[in-house]
Amino acid sequence: MSKRILVVDDSAMMRKLITKMVGPGGHVVVGEAKNGLEAVQLYKSLRPDLVTMDITMRDMDGFAAAKEILRFDDAAQIIFLSNLDVDRYGQDAQRLGAVGYVNKHQSRELMDMINNP
């Protein structure tokens, strides 16, 4: 099933990579944000089915943005996508109410999680 995805990452290269990655699966990237503030604004206006969220970003980081989005819509589906250590941050992401936590270099796991959140 095709999903409308909001990609949140401070790296333009990474946003491009994720957009290219999810395209063949039939999903559509409806918006891109480069920090948490933009992500919250775009989520409210676009209401995407799923959000891929980086953690380390300027202005507002991924955890703060996810909290803000979940406060606005507690059914929001957020997948944390980061280079940070999974063991250290994965459980915290789930405790926050996110669908999951995937390391950025694990593209297959990301696609699995998008298809079956």
């Binding site: 380390t56 980081d61 940070l84 250590d85 250290r88």
Partner: peptide, 19 residues
């Protein structure tokens, strides 16, 4: 790195080191 450091061969956020 910006807001990231390598600690015990693992990548850790400087903003949330204890998470």
């Amino acid at each position: 790195f910006y807001h990231v450091q390598i600690m015990n061969e693992k990548l850790v956020s400087k903003a949330h080191p204890q998470m």
